[in-house]
Design a protein around this nucleic acid. Structure first.
Length: 632
RNA sequence: GCCUGGUUAGCUCAACGGUAGAGCAGCUGUUUUGUAAACAGCAGGUUGGGGGUUCAAAUCCCUUACCAGGCUCCA
């Protein structure tokens, strides 16, 4: 009953930001867009045809433009052009008009095939050198070269397309943005100009997408991070080096405490390691030759180079190797919220999602061969539990396997097979759906990567679990077995909560800035109806503070309504309203974030409730999380 | 790192070759309020930094730092 009062409105729009509490652009960002559903196919044809029409329009204003690729994508289409004279976002409106004109002219899309020679001759005559290059490549793979022509425009393309341009509603698309790209995605090749378009079956769907994208931008962690004073980036500190403000630090520490408790229960022990390390360690680990360009330049001291650590593994390996190990003490699980530094390319940096200073929920598990499976299973189970706890459903899991590339992956086909089989069967046993991808493994073993998309659709690896069968020998890590002989341990690298930076960026967006009571920077805001009740409010404030709650008393001279508003815009989960009635009866009136209905209860009772919510880590920012203590 | 665009008060924005302005936040008063913005006043800016063009630059040009959207990369 009370539950329904408290949560009935939670899924309604939050009046402050005008966004639903739990909002999901998933429908637009579904990974598997290969559905063969009829409408999907129609939409695909429309998008793909629009890409051609865009190219047609660009050729009208830039006749010498060379065409790159122009596919349909999840939200529309793009086309890449090699231009002598640049196009800018100001040209998009004009191009859009030209596209509409082409659409209305009702051009037919006609397919034809050509031999390699004919195709190349024609493409080169048209000045389409990039396409000619691609035609040659396709042909060398034995593929047929098909062309689609509409009006005076012809393009090498496998289709499919609409039959006539007039089948496309001329208001169902919009040119969205302009960006750079590289030919064949290779940064050593030509720089192309990419124009992105949004396209849907009709205007309503386009408008809906635009509206929802706008709402999604409202919960962008960079916006909320500023509004809720979570972190600050400062030019004088450096790119990608966030300053965690007091509110953000609460979030980090709550998350960390939670992880520490879970890891303690799971038999981990904690370690701490320095931020800088001698160069040689990274030669030993094998990282330096591969990752030098993504490490900060070394600091020279006493004739030696020291690097800021880009990962914690070598340090943990050194801890393992600090004395002889017996099979009896395995598995050894070393955990650290280690701070690392990576010189990420400046263009990749983005709020907290991609930074240069990061703290990782890292641990390394050193175990025997007969323990690998149970350990990896436990890791995946822990990972799954975290995701369920935080209600993270917008992710996909990649099983990253090796490929035949001696430069990227260490030798040993048998060992790769062994490790990959274990990882795959663990995923199956724990019941995590995954997609295998060859060539994505770490150089020392297979990985299970949890891929998330942020609220505006950018995909990142949220966390990763790896089975390493190779590094132990580089570090000469051994244990004495039951047989009295030396053996090499397997190492599991795992970071289910990824980094504070990325995970919190994701949670900020996932929760729209409204954190559960246990995490919230301010857990309770006391709002007296007028200054006459400040005394009782102060008393409550002291009690709550003594109980360890993060409580703020609003003793401003703002109007009562304004005080409520201020508390709500800060997305504080619990507001205690205090007026005459409350003073008389030693109660408080409890108003939850985003919920107007409220409940008055004795002070002692509400404190017990809060304590229980805190110790249970209730996800009270979700509609269905049940309140404790029989409030129903 | 690359391509394109951007940077005006703490925040969100206006002024687009001719005296930098508003709302919110802040501060000071008045107001003491029962559920999302009381009222008044004050203060706040060498328009990211540097250089140039011009009688005159927030506005045009160059350069640098940073930001955004992509691309590349991602142990």
């Amino acid at each position: 009953m009370v539950k329904s009062i408290f949560y009935s409105k939670l899924n309604n729009p939050d009046k402050t930001s005008k966004i639903p509490l739990i909002f999901d652009l998933r429908i637009y960002f579904m990974h598997n867009c290969e559905s063969h559903d009829h409408a999907e196919l129609e939409l695909h044809k429309i998008r793909h045809s629009l890409a051609h029409i865009l190219a047609q329009a660009v050729l009208e204003v830039r006749p010498k433009a060379e065409l790159g690729f122009g596919p349909a994508i999840e939200t529309g289409f793009f086309y890449d052009f090699l231009l002598e004279e640049p196009l800018t976002s100001e040209d998009l409106k004009d191009l859009e008009k030209r596209m509409k004109k082409i659409i209305r002219s009702g051009q037919k899309f006609e397919c034809s095939t050509k031999s390699e020679t004919d195709a190349k001759t024609m493409l080169l005559e048209m000045g389409q050198k990039l396409k000619a290059e691609y035609a040659e490549e396709l042909s060398s793979k034995g593929l047929e070269l098909s062309f689609y022509q509409n009006g005076n425009f012809i393009d090498l393309c496998e289709g499919p397309h609409v039959e006539k341009s007039s089948q496309i509603a001329d208001n169902c698309f919009v040119l969205d943005s302009i960006a750079g790209s590289y030919w064949r995605g290779d940064s050593s090749k030509q720089v192309l100009t990419r124009i992105y378009g949004l396209a849907f079956l009709n205007r309503e769907q386009l408008d809906q997408f635009l509206t929802e994208r706008k709402l999604a931008q409202e919960r962008d962690h960079r916006k909320l991070g500023k509004e809720l004073e979570i972190y600050h980036m400062d030019d004088e500190i450096g790119q990608g080096l966030p300053l965690w403000l007091p509110n953000g630090t609460v979030l980090r520490e709550e998350l960390e405490t939670y992880a520490k408790e879970i890891e303690f229960q799971a038999g981990y022990v904690r370690v701490a390691t320095p931020h800088i390390t001698k160069e040689n360690l990274y030669y030993r680990s094998g990282h330096l030759p591969y990752y030098k360009e993504t490490m900060y330049s070394p600091i020279e001291i006493d004739g030696e180079n020291y690097y800021l650590k880009p990962m914690n593994c070598p340090h943990h390996h050194k801890i393992y190797g600090s004395r002889p190990r017996s099979y009896r003490e395995l598995p050894l699980r070393l955990a650290e919220y280690g701070t690392c530094y990576r010189y990420e390319s400046s263009g990749a940096l983005s709020g907290l999602l991609r930074v240069r200073a990061l703290s990782m929920n890292d641990a390394h598990i050193y175990c025997r061969e007969d323990q690998v499976k149970d350990e990896f299973n436990a890791v995946l189970q822990m990972h799954k539990n975290y995701y369920e706890k935080f209600r993270i459903s917008r992710y996909w899991v990649r099983l990253s396997l090796h490929a035949a590339d001696k430069n990227k992956f260490i030798d040993g086909e048998d060992r790769w097979q062994f490790a990959e089989n274990i990882v795959r069967s663990c995923l199956e046993e724990v019941g995590i759906e995954f997609k295998s991808e060859a060539g994505e493994a770490a150089f020392y073993g297979p990985k299970v990567d949890f891929q998330i998309r942020n609220v505006i659709g950018r995909e990142e690896t949220a966390s990763t679990n790896q089975l390493d069968f190779a590094i132990a020998s580089r570090f000469d890590l051994k244990y004495t077995g039951e047989d009295g002989k030396e053996h090499e341990p397997f190492i599991i690298h795992r970071a289910p909560l990824g980094t504070h930076e990325r995970f919190l960026a994701f949670l900020i967006e996932h929760f729209g800035g409204a954190f559960p009571t246990w995490m919230a920077p301010v857990q309770v805001r006391l709002v007296p109806v007028s200054e006459a009740f400040l005394g009782y409010a102060q008393e409550i404030s002291l009690i709550l503070h003594k109980e360890g709650f993060r409580v703020v008393l609003d003793d401003s001279s703002d109007s009562f309504s304004k005080k409520i508003r201020n508390a709500v815009t800060k997305k504080i989960p619990n507001i205690f309203v205090i007026g005459d009635n409350e003073v008389q009866n030693r109660t408080v009136t409890w108003r939850r974030y985003c919920v107007k209905d409220q409940i008055t209860m004795p002070l002692s009772r509400i404190i017990n409730l809060l304590k229980q919510m805190r110790s249970d880590r209730t996800m009270d920012n979700f509609a269905d999380e049940v309140l404790p203590m029989g409030l129903e």
